[in-house]
Design a protein around this nucleic acid. Structure first.
Length: 502
RNA sequence: GGGCUCGUAGCUCAGCCAGGCAGAGCAACGGGCUUUUAACCCGUUGGCCGCGGGUUCAAAUCCCGUCGAGCCCGCCA
């Protein structure tokens, strides 16, 4: 049946409920006193056919309705579980009016707990109320909603139909609590820093641009909170963190969404190795809390989070996994090798990083810290042995975190920004992959920032690993999609309903 | 940016290769049924075949374009 015709039936039922003085949309509350899961816990042991006199009031969405003449069965879903409702002609109030109740409606019922002859724990309903009328049909009760596009566009339907989707976000919530508690217990304070920024920084990425009309200023949505969090270190905060929504105006794929959340934290007076120790402890404890174990199954692979994690220098990693010994190569040789692999970059460091991606990345299944990054692609990090004192954490072949010993020398920081500017001028690229000069940040460092280490953790990717998903979109409730060209809504399909609620 | 795949009823799908009346199940509607659980039985309704062009006597089907989505590659820390 075409949508407008299907909707007609629902609208007619709504109309009839209104005429009976039972307009669901006029109702403001329902006093529930139980959840499906509680009923199940307390009464699962009763006998088939047993009818208790234990009264309950529950509410939720009807997922199915089975009519048998004098008895109607329905399944009600609340956030805790599902439970069967039984309506009986000789017991339930307004039995005939149940024809106005559809699968998909939100209902509140009161009744007693029973177990049917077939052994299904149920609520035998005495009185019932439609608390919200569904004006659109739910997807197929057996196959549910499978279309990936519709699942993301109309996530609300996905959450109704696919319990796994809902559970994923409940698990994510637990992870957020575990991480937040861990940081709080270790003396970190949670802060918020600007999302609208006059100068973007803290990462290499193309920003979203916007305009502030009152200030008459071009503004950017932040690509990272980093530079502001380090200003807080200057201000005397020793341990800070932020769950930071970030925005990058770049391509979308299973590992990238234009808006995503990073956890960044900074810790004054510690060096990078101590930071890596802390990250290991934190994530190992999160996994232990979640699973009771340090192992995790991800897409058929076992990931072992037990400390200590492997740490290796980027150049050693390239050698170890079959690539060249880049430290032994001149620039000419390195560029020639890169060309052979179809790698075309302007900076030596970028080539080394590409070689790492090419030879190594996919092999790093267990959590692994890759350290000693090329300096020229790390303008915010301190030095160590001619490299940047920087690490990236790889898990399941994915870059999950990026941290370094923070550069706190304002003079060197100024020069690094300058080099980025020069590179942008010389580059034949769009010039978006360099970091702009941030003089206020340099000025902040001029007041003195303590030595510190900090990290940004891509929470979406971490959630993917912890929830065993293959795409970021599954762990983002409303992933970014192209605009839908035309959306039919019921007041436009059936304008007469507009008169009902003037 | 390149390659591959998909788009048919509210949902899940068949039909496309090899052009010939647009189909099924679920949902909805009417009837039956007082213990079902993908309830069942009888009957009914329901289509911009993503959109636009082309080829053809004839296009859901073949061709071109386009929009949306998915996967892979490239790019993006």
């Amino acid at each position: 049946m075409t949508l407008p015709k299907l909707v007609k039936d629902y609208i007619d039922k709504l109309k009839e409920l209104r005429e009976l003085g039972k307009d669901p949309f006029k109702i403001k509350k329902f006093e529930k006193d139980a959840y499906a899961s509680e009923i199940r816990e307390k009464f699962s042991a009763i006998e088939a056919g047993e009818e208790t006199d234990y009264k309950v009031k529950i509410a939720g969405r009807l997922l199915s309705k089975r009519k048998h003449g004098g008895v109607i069965f329905a399944d009600l879903k609340d956030p805790s579980d599902k439970i069967q409702l039984v309506f009986r002609k000789d017991y339930t109030d307004d039995f005939k009016m149940l024809r106005l109740v559809d699968r998909g409606d939100i209902v509140g019922v009161s009744g007693v707990v029973i177990k049917t002859k077939r052994g299904e724990l149920s609520v035998l309903v005495k009185s019932w109320t439609v608390l919200s009328k569904a004006l659109r049909p739910l997807p197929d009760k057996w196959h549910g909603l499978e279309d990936v596009e519709t699942r993301y566009r109309q996530r609300y339907v996905d959450f109704i139909m696919n319990e796994e989707s809902r559970e994923c976000f409940i698990l994510i919530n637990r992870v957020l609590h575990l991480i937040r508690n861990y940081l709080n217990e270790n003396g970190f304070i949670e802060v918020y820093t600007p999302i609208l920024q006059p100068v973007y920084g803290g990462a290499f990425a193309r920003p979203f641009e916007t305009y502030h009309h009152f200030l008459e200023e071009k503004m950017y949505l932040r690509i990272a909170p980093e530079l502001y969090l380090k200003r807080l270190l200057v201000g005397g905060f020793e341990k800070v963190y932020e769950f930071a929504p970030c925005f990058r105006n770049e391509d979308v794929d299973s590992l990238h969404n234009p808006e995503f959340v990073q956890l960044e934290f900074y810790w004054a007076y510690i060096e990078l190795n101590q930071l890596m120790d802390f990250i290991e402890e934190m994530l190992e404890s999160v996994v232990r809390e979640l699973t009771g174990d340090t192992k995790l199954e991800y897409q058929g692979k076992t990931i072992e989070f037990k400390r200590p994690w492997k740490r290796l220098r980027m150049v050693d990693a390239i050698k170890e996994y079959g690539g060249p010994d880049v430290e032994a190569l001149s620039d000419e040789e390195l560029f020639r090798i890169a060309e052979e692999l179809d790698i075309h970059e302007e900076r030596r460091g970028e080539i080394i990083e590409k070689l790492f991606d090419y030879y190594v990345k996919d092999h790093l299944v267990n959590p692994t810290f890759v350290t000693h990054f090329p300096l020229d692609i790390s303008p915010l990090a301190k030095r160590i042995d001619g490299y940047a004192d920087r690490m990236e954490l790889y898990i399941a072949g994915m870059e999950v975190a990026n941290g370094f010993s923070e550069l706190n020398n304002p003079i060197e920081q100024y020069m690094r920004f300058k080099e980025e500017e020069d590179l942008r001028r010389k580059s034949d690229k769009k010039g978006l992959e360099t970091m702009p000069m941030d003089k206020d940040y340099v000025r902040a460092l001029e007041y003195g920032m303590p030595p510190a280490s900090g990290v940004g953790i891509g929470l979406g990717r971490l959630f993917m690993i912890l929830t065993n998903k293959t795409t970021l979109r599954e762990v983002i409730a409303f992933p970014t999609l192209a605009r839908e060209e035309k959306i039919d809504v019921i007041p436009e399909l059936y304008p007469e309903v507009l008169d009902w609620y003037e």
